[in-house]
């Protein structure tokens, strides 16, 4: 009984780590090698730790639809939907019209987590994460081979990963498709018709008045 609150707390924390991000937007992250000049302009710090079998992934995220109010409204999830803690670089945060639109962030991920499936970056008001902030991200040059960066792709809407390697295009079959692109002539046709009707009715009136004379 005494341990009940503790277990309840554990259960809540466990659920929070799987926080639903329904209604949030998301993209699939593609983890990549860093460019050759990655370490040239980096702030180096030999005290930055990196456990064996872990990659440190650093990159900028600024997709056009990315817009959040708080730095805890963004998260990265592994293939089991578990949140991965993020470290966000305060100096890189860019705001437009009072919303955050661009951040540079870092996270650690094990080789096993990478090989077990895609990482997903999610953001929005429904996302609740506990991210840490630093003024500038630091890099340990002694572990160059452990650093990676990321790109992103739109998450496929349903279907298997196999389908993602091809692309689909929507085609509309419309029996009047050949006429569809002519519809902008409709107003012109209407004007011509009205002018024709007017001419005919004027002609008829003139004929009628001549006959009455």
């Amino acid at each position: 009984m005494e341990r009940l609150p503790f277990f309840l707390l554990l259960a809540v924390l466990f659920c929070l780590s799987y926080t639903a991000t329904f209604g949030a937007e998301s993209v699939i992250l593609t983890i990549r090698e860093v460019p050759d000049d990655f370490f040239d302009n980096a702030i180096l710090d030999e005290n930055e730790t990196c456990e064996e079998g872990t990659f440190i992934v650093i990159g900028i995220f600024n997709a056009p639809s990315f817009s959040i109010k708080s730095l805890n409204n963004i998260t990265v999830q592994d293939a089991n939907s578990r949140q991965i803690p993020l470290q966000i670089e305060r100096a890189s945060v860019y705001r437009e019209f009072d919303e955050i639109n661009s951040v540079r962030l870092a996270f650690k991920v094990s080789k096993e987590a990478l090989s077990s499936g895609s990482l997903r970056l999610a953001w929005g008001d429904d996302v609740s994460a506990t991210n840490s902030e630093v003024e500038r991200l630091r890099i340990n040059a002694a572990h160059k081979e452990r650093y990676r960066t990321f790109g992103w792709e739109e998450a496929p809407k349903g279907g298997s990963g196999e389908e993602f390697s091809s692309a689909t295009l929507e085609v509309i079959v419309d029996d009047s498709a050949n006429l569809y692109y002519l519809w902008y002539l409709l107003p012109m046709a209407l004007i011509f018709s009205l002018l024709l009707v007017r001419k005919v009715s004027i002609g008829n009136r003139e004929t009628a008045s001549e006959q009455s004379q």
Partner: peptide, 17 residues
């Protein structure tokens, strides 16, 4: 693309590879 017999009006998806 040439519409097959039996393909009715509507939206269809084609796959590009």
């Amino acid at each position: 693309l040439t519409r097959k017999k039996g393909t009715k009006e509507g939206k269809y998806k084609i796959t590009l590879l």
